[in-house]
Each structure stands twice: as C-alpha cells, then as structure tokens.
Write a protein that binds this DNA or RNA. Structure first.
Lengths: 119, 119
DNA sequence: GCCGTACTACGATGTCTATCGTACGACTCC
DNA sequence: GGAGTCGTACGATAGACATCGTAGTACGGC
C-alpha cells in the first residue's frame, strides 16, 4: 500500500509542480549569468550533471544557492545519487508549459555568446 | 498651429544599441510582473502607447522606473510626443538579436495568464 | 569505525531594486 | 501668461539577492 518506492537516497528535495512554475520566476532564474551558464551547459550535455561538474567563478555556497534558485523556479530537477547531487533540465515540463520558449532562450544565449566571443 | 511635421522634441532619451542589448538584461526586465504586463500590452496593441495608457497598480514614480528599466534593457523604445511619452516594443531589434524569443515569451505569458484566470 | 568528498545550512554583508511622496520641468490649451 | 496634464528627478526606505566563510551532515570507500 505504501511506498514501494526505490528510494536510492533518503534525502528528498522540494520541487514545484508544473502548475506552480511561474514564467516570471523562470525568467528571473535565467537572468543571472551564472545560472544561465549552468542551464546552457545542462542543455548542451542533455543528461543530468553533478554540481561539481561545473567550474563556476563563485564559491561553493554560492553555487548551491544558484542551483537552488534554478530548482525552486522549476528550471531544473535535482536528486541525490550517493554523495553527488545530479541536476537535470526539466525540459518536458517547461516545453509543456511554455512551448518553444526554452529552445528560443537557449538559441538566444548561444547567439549572444557567439556575438561576444566570435566577434 | 502645431507644426505638421513631427517636431522632434528637444528631450531625447538614451537607448542601448542592438549590440549593447544583453539577454540577461532582457530576461531580468521581463521577470517583473508589472513590466511583463506592460510588454504584453504593448505587443497586443502593436503600436506605441503612452505611459498614461497603462493602468498599473503602482505609483507614477514607480511606473517611470519600470519604463526606464524596459528602455535601458532594450525592450522598448521611448520618445516624446508633446507631453506624452510614447512607448514601443523594439520588436525588430529583438527579433534580429534573438529570433523567435520574444514571440515565445509572449506566448508563454499568454499561456500562463490563461492557466490562472481560466481555471 | 574513520576519513575524505560532496553538498548544505547559517549568519553576515554589501549591493541592487521596487516602492513611495514630493517637488519640478516640459508641453498644450485657453 | 496661467493653469492643467504628463512625466521626471531626487531622496528615502524596506526587502531581495549575490556573495562569502565556516561549520555541519550525508554518503562511499578503506
């Protein structure tokens, strides 16, 4: 009756349901360069990545903070896997809520990155 | 007796060039509910609107602030026309910089508004 | 059991920002 | 010119946020 859930790890993290995801929150989450970079990398890899995979120009505490903002805004899904915390883009949820938006944003980010580095 | 020609008012406003528009700035500008609402209304009307056209739940000073944020981030273009200050979406610039993004965002906003009011 | 790794929680801090009210400048109309 | 309308500038304020360091917790390997 109750949970036959294969809980590989007892630590659970709160995520917003699709209905709770707010566009403003998503945009705010993505308006920070560090977080935008995380999302771009996540999208580029296509698979969940551990926090430590990223080489960010901020401290560990700040990294935790940014990942939390992304999770609480509904952009990423986090779950523990041993000592590592895996981060995956909530692509399906976002695509369902805001069709095409994520791709447009990622394209825009890539486009802008090209403008600035490629000259 | 006013000049038939659109006399260029002496008051000029600084706008970022397309090259200066940053995606993060645009997203940040759009992450505020009041500003998102302004942009949606602007997009819906399709033509420049005066500041006073909007009935926003904030004071006049705050309204000015929000319009300035939108202008400085490159989302809207402002120019005086007599005592009125007209605000127009920089659709062409944004579409050129970030193809499809603005429409995706507007669609997303509409979609979300539907979710919340319609249910 | 112990230690190292991965990440978090907490507290502090400086900056940014959304908000307001009031005083002022620009323009139009009479 | 005077009055009214539209919007700005300035100063103040409270809350949010990005950042850090340190101490602590959970897990895996030895």
């Amino acid at each position: 009756m109750t949970t036959a859930v294969p809980a590989p790890s007892s630590r659970d993290l709160p995520h917003p349901t699709p209905g709770e995801i707010r566009l403003e929150g998503v945009l705010h989450a993505l308006s920070d360069p560090v977080r935008l970079r995380i999302v771009r990398e996540l999208a580029a890899e296509g698979v969940p990545l551990s926090c430590s995979h990223f080489d960010l120009p901020v401290s560990k505490s700040t990294t935790t903070h940014h990942f939390r903002v992304l999770r609480e805004s509904g952009v990423i899904r986090q779950n523990y896997e041993g000592t590592a915390k895996m981060n995956g883009l909530r692509r399906d949820d976002l695509d369902d809520l805001f069709p095409g938006m994520l791709d447009s944003l990622l394209t825009a980010a890539t486009h802008q990155a090209g403008r600035h580095s490629g000259a």
